[in-house]
Design a protein around this nucleic acid. Structure first.
Lengths: 226, 226
DNA sequence: ACTAAAATATGACAATTATCATATTAAAAA
DNA sequence: TTTTTAATATGATAATTGTCATATTTTAGT
């Protein structure tokens, strides 16, 4: 079992506030997991008795809507924590987490985390700030969904993927989403998403190579996204 | 100046965790304000150095979108706190707060509140839970905006207003919104909102009397909202 | 009370987006 | 490899929603 003291993630998440002693405790009670692409970490409605720390990989947080379709609420990646909201609210998780690529995660039981909340003020504050950041992001996202067209939202999402997760050596977006998943982020029908991607391709704004997407004209995409 | 120890609001918000001594402190440093309908409490981008405690009235939290239109992100009412996220994140507020009716609010300076964060764990926990609740709500709202039709969203919003803020003696919704504001909650053009209200009226689901809206068939509205 | 301004309402039309049908291509399984 | 299945792509069309014009009603200001 790998040690938290040496884990790179420790520097990224709220966990960076933990002391050496506290980290040793986490090390001894955490469990490590390899999660394959497509596998479910947890599902909406489940009781998750702790938090997941993402050591590597990206996952999507989805919520089932009334019409039976999944909506992708957020993408979460290396260095971030999952399940904080649910743990604090003492409620089942309201979102499902599914791996978009192979992942490495550690699970830290609630009992341990709650102890840090009591003892380590800086840790509490970090978690709070993270959740506040999520809330702000959610507000922004909400306004975009309410006020922007599908085309604007697609352009914006492509830029977001580029800025947040970067690109491979061949310049294609690192996070590979299916058309269906892309549609479920921007909130539209899969066909509409595909059609707009084709349009962007014709306008030479992007290049499509199977699932790979290469942004060719970031400035024009920015203009479209407004 | 009225005293916090006797204020009804004290039982509602996160402040209920405060001790008698802490409440006395708040009493002595808070400032009370009467805010008239339509007046601004704070504006997006401002630095608000503390939190507002709503003693009476309802306000809207709005965010300006790219196209210059305001989107109503949330309605906040008696017993709730404003400006918590901004205070914790140590950032300017990301939303504007505008009174929908005459309001009574108290302002508690940040320095005081931060002291409670350090000393009173239950208070921190309450604030955290509130923010987590807001985040969950935001997730739900996001999915609705992305997946539901305008008609479904209108029905849902009417039911929400009814359930959350109740009705007057004449059965009309207590919170009176202009058509424009209603449209800006559900994320549509004012004309579309008006048109759908007319449609609901023709179907005998609601009654319209100027700004007053009376829900006549809650069950059918529920079915429409899905 | 009267005038001006704003909010509500409705029609006509255009633009956007969804749905259904059907190729085509890519990926997975036999 | 071959077959089967799933994902991507595109056309045709319908439904939804937005925009502009304009009338009517309500509200606010003098």
């Amino acid at each position: 079992m790998s040690k938290c003291e040496q884990c790179i993630v420790r520097e990224l998440s709220s966990l960076k506030a933990l002391t050496r002693d506290e980290l040793l405790k986490v090390s001894s009670c955490k469990t490590s997991h390899i999660i394959k692409k497509g596998e479910i970490i947890f599902e909406e409605g489940e009781n998750v008795n702790g938090i997941y720390c993402i050591k590597d990989g990206v996952c999507k947080l989805t919520k089932l809507s009334g019409n039976g379709k999944d909506h992708i609420v957020k993408l979460v990646t290396k260095g971030e924590l999952l399940g904080q909201r649910s743990m604090i609210s003492e409620e089942p998780v309201n979102l499902s987490a599914v791996a978009l690529e192979d992942m490495e995660v550690c699970f830290i039981p609630k009992t341990e985390v709650m102890r840090f909340f009591d003892k380590n003020n800086q840790f509490s504050m970090n978690v709070m700030k993270t959740i506040c950041g999520d809330l702000k992001e959610a507000d922004d996202h909400m306004v975009n969904l309410a006020q922007k067209t599908v085309k604007e939202r697609l352009a914006e999402t492509l830029l977001y993927l580029n800025d947040t997760f970067g690109k491979n050596e061949d310049n294609s977006l690192k996070v590979q989403l299916s058309r269906d998943e892309l549609a479920s982020i921007i909130g539209t029908a899969t066909e509409s998403c595909i059609r707009l991607l084709s349009e962007f391709k014709k306008l030479d704004l992007i290049e499509l190579n199977g699932k790979k997407i290469i942004l060719k004209d970031v400035n024009k995409l920015k203009k479209i996204s407004e």
